[in-house]
Design a protein around this nucleic acid. Structure first.
Lengths: 337, 337
DNA sequence: CTGAAAGCGCTAACAC
DNA sequence: GTGTTAGCGCTTTCAG
């Protein structure tokens, strides 16, 4: 591997000049810069990140912690993060804490402490107080995506408003018996997303003067399959008689659409369905959804971290979302209202 | 940040001893090791990866290059890689070359040259000769997942055999008119996967003495949506009259199942459908598929790289696959054979 | 078994 | 503008 000294010798300058010429920091005459660049290119020289990091204290790496990498929402966010980091000239170290709790502890206790990253992004991960403390000890900028966090500045999505918007849409269409497919609150690590969306649903009903009925509520685990089964249960209850359903995720909503079909119900004639996410499959299924632009969320997080690293104030804040109306929702039929 | 010297001073030994005690390399008396560990823990000391890398020449990082991170197959592989690397004590740097060609060039020309990684895994990425050359110049172990590569040792999946197995299954069920949903060969970057699977399909037909008919072939882009549309076209052709369909990906197969349903066909009574992948949704749809265990593929790649880094010979080789029969395929009805 | 000392390859003051 | 000189924090001979 060719070192900076070889380049320096070949270009007839000192190592310091090579460093300045190539990094753009400090003054170098255009001629020298040109010559040094040429020599470096010719020799195939690239700085050693280790040496550079050691000297500067910067690694030009950002760590990203996710609970899963094989779920749509998370890999969409990571995709946005990845593109934004590449553009900003940073590498991305992926910490996937999913599998086992031991791995998670390891990561927080030692891995991230090797000072390998200049900043951290935690995606939909509610940190335990001691984990947040570990992060804080690193003394690098860190930001959470996915909900207000007590221990970290965050790009928060207002899940309450999301749930309210989705339900308001159904209410506005004249539906009075609106079911909700939520998540298991025990599985509520991720910023209480299921709970918040459910509360939004309830607020919307109450605002419309509609009762919140337990018979109109079912739990699933955010997947298509679980949504399918839960929706089938709901649709099968003789006492439910809903005309609309709000699922806390698009995947569950898709499951619900498939369940309705299998039971012989027509969507949206017999059942209006709305989801949350903006999942890549939602358009195909004609699903009305509240898009939360996960890729954009990742980009926003990168912007915030990079700004902070550049000495600007970290811009936390709210994340945008938008109701996308497609063909899975329609006005309640007069006979049923 | 506490340094090795502070630990050394606090423990009353030299920095060298601290290094030996903590790394496990070299001889240290049990007593000293114990004391040093205690002090280190107490002070919250962790080695600086930059300093360590500079001194040893090892980064304990593996680079992973993927064309997409937001597609099921790739994030499944990455998930496997990530878990295996965590277990092996390596960090994972993710290079997502999807977005734009400029980014791709950048990554190959300079990013990976900063010697930030000890090894590289390229997932389903056919490298251009110059890209492979860039990689080779790094002089670190590299391995490709996804098909035989001319420029890189590879964990290859035998896509020909995959296509043959899927088709053989349909043939064995007595089907004579078997359609194929393939991928766009122009989109064939990824080791000619669509082409190979199609060839396997054709081989199987020929072995069974069946003709290869263009009318039974359609192209899509591996997604549910494209599979849906292509299958609908195929099923609508008056001259096709197929009783079975082999799709080159599970997502397309799922699209085909949905298309058949929408046309009023019953799966598998009117149409048997088989896919390839072992997609997480395939079980839900009762899809018969050839599972290619992507998570396992990632693990295998890590094993190979780590072995090579430990001085053992790199174990390239073939990847396993398995036919999983579910409810989307059934024997051809006698009347139709 | 332990310590001293020489670097790993680069950057950042500080001179000139 | 450019070179000199110290390190950055760790590992690893080499002595003892």
């Amino acid at each position: 591997m060719v070192s900076i000294d070889e380049v320096a010798r070949a270009a007839g300058v000192s190592a310091a000049t090579v460093s300045r010429a190539l990094s753009g920091r400090g003054q170098v005459s255009p001629t020298t810069r040109e010559r040094v660049s040429a020599v470096a290119r010719e020799l195939g020289y690239t700085v050693s990140s280790a040496a550079s990091s050691l000297a500067t204290g910067r690694t030009r790496c950002i760590g990203v912690i996710v609970p899963f990498i094989d779920r749509w929402f998370f890999n969409s966010v990571v995709s946005g993060i990845s593109d934004a980091l590449t553009r900003a000239g940073y590498d991305l170290i992926l910490y996937n804490v999913s599998s086992d709790p031991d791995a998670r502890r390891m990561i927080f206790e030692s891995v991230i402490h090797r000072r390998r990253v200049d900043g951290m992004i935690a995606v939909s991960l509610e940190l335990a107080p001691d984990e947040a403390a570990q992060l804080a000890r690193l003394d690098i900028p860190a930001i959470a995506i996915g909900g207000p966090s007590e221990n970290l500045p965050a790009l928060a999505i207002d899940d309450l408003a999301l749930g309210r918007l989705a339900t308001d849409h159904l209410v506005a269409l004249g539906h009075r018996r609106i079911a909700h497919l939520g998540g298991d609150p025990a599985f509520d690590l991720d910023f209480h997303i299921p709970t918040r969306r459910r509360q939004g649903y309830e607020q919307s009903l109450e605002a419309a003067g509609l009762p919140v009925e337990p018979v109109l509520y079912a739990q699933a685990d955010f997947t298509v399959e679980s949504g399918y089964h839960a929706a089938k249960q709901l649709l099968g209850r003789p006492d439910a008689r809903m005309t609309a359903l709000f699922a806390a995720s698009d995947e569950m909503a898709i499951g619900a659409i498939l369940a309705a079909r299998d039971l012989g119900y027509l969507v949206p004639r017999d059942l209006s369905v709305v989801g949350i996410d903006g999942h890549s499959l939602s358009e195909f299924f004609g699903l009305t959804t509240v898009d939360q632009f996960p890729t954009r969320q990742g980009e926003r997080a990168v912007e915030a971290i990079v700004a902070e690293l550049d000495g600007l104030p970290m811009a936390a804040g709210e994340l945008p979302f938008e109701l996308i109306v497609r063909s899975s929702t329609a006005a309640a039929r007069p006979a049923e209202t």
